[in-house]
């Protein structure tokens, strides 16, 4: 089974092609350029490099949130467009679950993917192996650390918010592990593998955005 997956939830624009779960090719750019400009040429160039065409893919997948609203829309639109054009299925996966996926298979420790949501807030979740202990949520970094301190389990932090909040994390949870930079960039390979797993378990659904927008607005003291 061939999967084409993309992740445009963060600054990184990343596309991967897998075959039977193994990586065939991946391009990742980590520049401050709009995804609207980057992602389609990246997909096109990768396929060309691999001597593959859109119609060779069996499944199209993307990170569907949380993350940058505009980035997510671009990714979801791209995947839905590609899938429809060749009448193949598409699948959306949680950005956070994809980020945690490979690491959570290596360890019995908890894995906490954290994405910068600005204003000292993060999008986060908590996984232990394949179990989800905390569903994707939006919280201030201080509240997240207080919550995890209560849980009292050693936690591995991964994601673009790690370097931003590393001092706080180390002070609040001294036995936590901060993932090295290599693991804090979103790579589409994770999305591809997770999407295929869900698809084969008949748990996949078409990508729909999971912005966590309502909680964001409420936290900011929504005006109407």
């Amino acid at each position: 089974m061939k999967v084409l997956a993309i992740d445009t939830a963060t600054k990184a624009a990343t596309v991967a092609v897998t075959e039977n779960g193994a990586l065939v090719g991946e391009y990742t750019l980590n520049l401050d350029q709009p995804h609207s400009q980057k992602i389609m040429p990246l997909i096109e160039n990768l396929l060309k490099e691999l001597h593959l065409q859109v119609q060779d893919m069996d499944l199209f997948a993307c990170a569907q949130g949380p993350g940058s609203f505009t980035g997510l829309r671009i990714g979801i639109a791209a995947v839905q467009g590609l899938a429809r054009s060749v009448n193949k299925p598409s699948a959306g996966v949680s950005t956070l679950e994809a980020m945690a996926y490979s690491v959570s298979r290596l360890t019995n420790d908890c894995v906490c993917p954290v994405l910068d949501a600005r204003r000292s807030q993060v999008y986060y979740a908590l996984y232990k192996g394949s179990a989800e202990l905390i569903a994707p949520s939006l919280e201030s970094i201080d509240n997240v650390l207080a919550q995890l301190a209560c849980l009292g389990k050693r936690t591995i932090f991964i994601g673009d918010a790690v370097s931003l909040h590393q001092n706080k994390i180390q002070q609040s949870l001294p036995d936590s592990v901060l993932a090295p930079e290599i693991l804090n960039v979103n790579f589409a390979y994770n999305v591809a593998v997770l999407a295929q797993k869900k698809f084969e378990a008949k748990q996949a659904a078409k990508p729909t955005p999971e912005y966590l927008i309502k909680s964001y607005a409420e936290k900011m003291g929504e005006q109407k």
Binding site: S68, F69, I213, Y216, M220, E222, Q223, K224
Partner: peptide, 17 residues
């Protein structure tokens, strides 16, 4: 627009920051 949530929906934060 009707609400702060609507405003978030047009990715206002991206412009702001």
């Amino acid at each position: 627009l009707q609400s702060t949530e609507d405003l978030m929906g047009i990715d206002f934060d991206s412009y702001l920051f």
